[in-house]
Amino acid sequence: MVGAGNGRRLCALGIAGALAGTVLVGCGDDGDAQDGAGASSARTSAGAEEQDTRAVRSAYGRTAQEDTAKVRLRVRTSADGRSETANGQGAVDLEDGDSAMTLGVQGQRIEQRVIDRILYQRMPEGQAPGGKPWIRIDIGKVAAQQGAGDGSVSDPAQSAAYAKAITDKGVAKKGAETIGGVRTTRYGVLVDVAELPDGGTLRKQVGPTLPMDVWLDDQGRMRRQQIEMTVKAPAQSREGSSSDASAAPQRFTVRTVTDFTDFGTDVAVDAPPAGQVTDMTGKLLKQGGRQS
């Protein structure tokens, strides 16, 4: 990492940036979003479970049909007894993942754009490297090095793969809740990591399953998504360490909550002028290589 404080901040913001472009991971199949009858027989219970699974799997398609939405994002990253919280709000294209957001981290404000899986962030004054206000990170390249595929988990072409990762046993209805004045049904979901693209590698980092909660409105659209994962990072490299260089890999926990409102809102995202941007992709890839 680049320095303790800046490195952690960049990590948290990088996660926030990636999630801003992948907000609908885990869903995407055809199915009905109607509730089960709730009878006591085993057959009816099994039918209700299957119906709940179809409702969750269909949520991506139903939400993506709205094309765009406003989003509110909360990301809490915890490691080594410390935690950082990033809050964001903006708008996202639900089909291609492009987004424009404003993030707040440690009292500082950061403008963020995701375009074609390229993350741009306008850093606070005096904090951007290279004397330029914007940094650029190729999310796909960084994710590929970390064994997370090309980072395109919101790509409609891959959505079926994520839907298949949700088994009938992995969905449980948790009850009704009101989100932003909208009545929703909350579902708990377990995603089988091995069934995801590059799941074998990803499984080593996050474990066999990912817990996820989703809140669906009466049209089967996603109104809130919560993902919590514990990530096993490679052991710290030799720099700055001594006899403990071979210590057990670090772990950090990321909890992300994303709210969706105002479906159909306008989303206009443009890349910053090239002369105002410093590309940080190579530096992050080099740091990642040293830690592997």
Rank of each mutant, 00 (worst) to 15 (best):
E111A: 13
E111Q: 12
Q112R: 09
Q112S: 13
R113W: 03
I115P: 04
D116R: 14
R117M: 08
R122C: 04
M123F: 14
M123I: 06
P124T: 08
E125N: 09
P129K: 09
G131Y: 02
P133F: 10
W134G: 00
I135H: 00
D138A: 08
I139V: 13
I139G: 02
I139M: 10
I139T: 05
Q145S: 11
A148Y: 10
D150G: 11
G151C: 08
S159N: 06
A161E: 10
A163D: 05
I166E: 03
D168A: 14
V171D: 02
A172V: 14
K173F: 06
K174Q: 14
E177Q: 10
E177V: 06
I179Q: 03
T184D: 01
T184E: 01
Y187E: 03
V193S: 02
L196F: 05
P197T: 01
D198R: 12
D198H: 11
G199K: 00
R203V: 06
Q205K: 15
Q205L: 13
T209I: 09
P211E: 00
M212R: 09
M212S: 12
M212W: 07
M212Y: 05
L216N: 02
D218Q: 13
Q219E: 15
M222I: 13
R223W: 04
R224H: 08
Q226W: 07
I227L: 15
E228R: 13
E228N: 09
K232N: 09
A233I: 05
P234V: 02
S237G: 15
R238E: 10
E239L: 13
G240T: 05
G240P: 03
S242G: 15
S243I: 11
